[in-house]
Amino acid sequence: MNQSPGIVLVSHSAQLAAGLRELLAQIATDRVPVALAGGTADGGLGTSYDRIAEAITEADGGAGVIILPDLGSSVLTALTVLEDHPRPDVLLVDAPFVEGAVAAAVTAASGADLATVAEAARQARGIAKLEAPEAGPQPTSGAEGSRVSAQVTLPATLHARPAGRLAQEAAKFTSAIRLEYGAKTVNPTGVLTVMSLGATAGGTVTVHAEGPDADAAVETLAAILAEVE
């Protein structure tokens, strides 16, 4: 399936939803359908049952839809729509409104399926903005398979799109994988986790992997890092 999962942004404010869609268009791609259900029908603050239902239809290109609400009553209204029109391929996702939308859009743009996009949005809840990222799984000396590392000098800043590709590819391997940049080490299976490295052009990112497919993991991720533009 070539169509990307769609995203519905449910907000009390039409301007807030529109601004977030503008942000997603800049850091993801226009290939990801993003529909808005912001404000009430008369232009006020609030949520609208009809707007949510219409936005689901607008965002649905055949690969499913995730709904991201901002505050309490938007959740309740979205739940009511889904109760009246239940569909297994329309998911209401509990995630931070902005960070969840960014993670979902970048992951969808990388070619991921509905479940992966929804999980990327959920994982955004655990990404700290100011604290150092938590270290990812640490390979142990008893792990089966080889231990491999590779250093890559970034040709450009590690932004959202390559971060999304890294996260999607890293999730395919069974080996324990880490990305290291400066004093930070992260598990690269989450797009916002990768972005939290803050890796800039000219900096060196080291890919570590240990396990049965470590060679392939390092080769794949290093190639993505070397092509950042």
Rank of each mutant, 00 (worst) to 15 (best):
T29D: 05
A25R: 05
V65Q: 10
I67S: 05
V98C: 01
I66A: 03
V102D: 00
V32D: 01
L68N: 04
A95F: 07
R21N: 02
A103R: 03
I52N: 08
R21C: 01
V93R: 11
V81D: 01
A112Q: 05
A78F: 06
A124M: 09
L91H: 11
T40Q: 08
L16D: 11
S48E: 11
R31F: 03
H85V: 12
S74A: 13
V65I: 09
T40L: 15
V32R: 04
L45G: 07
T77E: 10
E22Q: 13
L23F: 01
G62L: 14
G111K: 10
R122W: 08
V117W: 14
L92Q: 02
E83V: 15
A37Q: 06
A78R: 15
V81M: 11
R21I: 00
S74G: 14
L16C: 10
E119C: 09
G46N: 02
Y49K: 03
A105Y: 02
S48I: 05
L82K: 08
G61E: 06
L16N: 10
A115S: 11
G111C: 11
A101D: 01
T80E: 15
I52V: 07
T57Y: 13
A124Y: 01
V117S: 03
Q123E: 04
V81N: 05
I67D: 10
A63C: 10
E83L: 15
R87W: 08
I27R: 02
I56M: 03
G46P: 03
S74R: 14
V102H: 00
H85C: 05
D113H: 06
T29H: 09
A53D: 11
A35L: 15
D60R: 10
D113Q: 01
L71T: 07
A17G: 08
